[in-house]
Design a protein around this nucleic acid. Sequence first.
DNA 1: TATTCTGTTGCAACTCGATTGCAACAACCT
DNA 2: AGGTTGTTGCAATCGAGTTGCAACAGAATA
Lengths: 148, 148
Amino acid sequence: MPFANTEIPGRFQALLAERGVRMTGQRRAILNVVETAKKHLDAGQILRRARKHDPSIDRSTVYRTLGLLKRHGLIDELDLMHLEGEAHYYERKLNRDHIHLACLRCGRITEFVSDLFESLKGQIEKECGYRIAVARLEIGGYCPKCRT
Amino acid sequence: MPFANTEIPGRFQALLAERGVRMTGQRRAILNVVETAKKHLDAGQILRRARKHDPSIDRSTVYRTLGLLKRHGLIDELDLMHLEGEAHYYERKLNRDHIHLACLRCGRITEFVSDLFESLKGQIEKECGYRIAVARLEIGGYCPKCRT
DNA sequence: TATTCTGTTGCAACTCGATTGCAACAACCT
DNA sequence: AGGTTGTTGCAATCGAGTTGCAACAGAATA
């Protein structure tokens, strides 16, 4: 997950406070994990990391907190081509949509930003008449090292 | 699901026979459901429809047959933005990739084919060095009737 | 047509990610 | 500090999908 450096530490906490969301130790631990993640994590991985700070945290709290972050538009939920199992992956939402490429052989994830993608979304809004809320382009394929 | 008219009845059965895949009554029933579907169906809906022809068909047979069709590249598996639950949806694979738009209010699904999408895939292959196997663009938004 | 081989099926048990009801608890406001 | 209300841990539960296995049925062979 690139762009980790664009992240202001404690940004999630500040944004949630602004909106009058109650802050707890468990939430702080989970937000911290998601904010500082350098790769896409699933709920189980987030739970394990959060428990290093607070071992009493429960699975359900992780799911509820991820739901909270989703509802507030702070994170995106990804499938990443269901590379392993059916779990969802989470990442901080950024100003710009990006494409996810998943290598079907080695599992490597690459992100890609493209003006063409923005134009395509524009074309779709115009021609289909939809107002786009989320656009998720996920590609499965073979990365430079793995393609034969 | 448009393009239903581009479908030759019994095409799946012919293609599987060509490849030496054993044909059974249960498979025929399931293939028939998938081939004649006018909208995207999930595994449960496919099971219910197939059971109208052969009430003894089991869930596991549906999943195994869908897996067979996936492995042979005859169908695509879609998430459709997880509109209801986490089930997957299936559709016949066509020559041309298309984009799925899901209305987050009324659940309507619209399909869209775009040259720009093809160009975008070309750009991605060139700039990321990936060989693309599957490209899935799913959009959640509000359709002309539902956007306020 | 009968025989055999091998892939397929139904069944039941199970996996795994995710959700929920509820009593205990802890933020936050005053 | 006290009271209100949102949050938590726990355990039970859900629902999609998978698996092991014995019985079975295509399809090739004799």
